[in-house]
């Protein structure tokens, strides 16, 4: 991380603080609503285990325990697809080079999951996750910098996420999102982009069952090339209007 040597309040530390604060509020609200946190770190599975143990077995007496589980599946897409339920949260820890991260994050919305990407490397577009917690600085292997300011630190970031999530629970009135908040950034029925959905099964020549926003529905697939389970499609008014590359934003 590129910290100023004399204090922790420079621009980058501020970005990290703001990003973790926003993600913590979202995570606390999801826990309050019964969510499980699924932890994925393809390059360093130990980071996923560390996040999970923070929440399951808090080190500070009197703080709440929450369901957080590392996903041990060799293919995190296949694992999270069957493990997670709509309303759950998935946190992915890893670099932009890690295989498996983008296909997983690309599908999280279709499965009804909230996504957090704690990462490093070239900063991806914001659309990749609901919350990007991005560490600047040279790519490093595993935890911690040898010299402050020279490398990334996933551990600090997820420690902060745990600490701030606990703080949110001291504010019970804020554990549910206000009802007047817009449900999404675009109108789901007239958006030019449409909604992203994952094909579950092709039911006949004209239709497929898909998951969109965690809900199952049957859509018309006659306008697009033949699809198969696992494909991502854009759905507009019950019709698939495009097949989407799962690895692109």
């Amino acid at each position: 991380m590129t910290f100023a040597a004399s204090n922790g309040t420079d621009v980058v530390a501020g970005d990290l603080a703001d990003a973790v604060a926003a993600a913590s509020l979202t995570l606390a609200r999801a826990f309050a609503a019964g969510a499980t946190l699924w932890c994925v770190a393809p390059e360093w599975p130990a980071h996923a285990e560390h996040v999970a143990v923070e929440f399951v077995h808090p080190v500070i007496v009197g703080t709440r325990a929450f369901p957080a589980i590392p996903v041990g599946a060799a293919d995190p897409v296949a694992g999270v697809r069957v493990l997670a339920r709509p309303g759950d949260v998935v946190i992915v820890i890893g670099t932009t080079r890690a295989t498996g991260i983008r296909p997983l994050l690309r599908r999280a919305g279709a499965w009804g999951l909230t996504s957090i990407w704690l990462g490093t490397g070239p900063r991806p577009e914001a659309a990749w996750a609901d919350h990007l917690i991005w560490l600047q600085g040279p790519d490093a292997h595993g935890p911690g910098p040898g010299v402050p300011g020279e490398a990334v630190d996933f551990v600090l970031a997820y420690h902060l996420l745990w600490e701030l999530t606990q703080v949110v629970f001291e504010h019970p009135g804020l554990l549910t999102a206000p009802v007047d908040e817009p449900a999404g950034e675009v109108c789901i029925t007239c958006s030019d982009e449409g909604r992203l959905a994952e094909v579950e099964a092709v039911t006949d020549d004209a239709h497929a069952d898909v998951l969109a926003g965690g809900r199952r529905e049957s859509i018309d697939v006659r306008l697009v090339d033949p699809v198969e389970p696992g494909d991502l499609v854009l759905v507009h008014a019950g019709v698939a209007i495009a097949v989407v590359d799962g690895a692109e934003p």
Partner: peptide
């Protein structure tokens, strides 16, 4: 009945900044 998430977010971010500085 507390409803101002903006105030809480500012508090959370301030707390994070202090913890980052302490960690360093």
């Amino acid at each position: 009945e507390e409803r101002d998430a903006g105030s809480l977010l500012a508090e959370l971010a301030g707390s994070a900044r202090r913890k980052i500085a302490e960690s360093q």
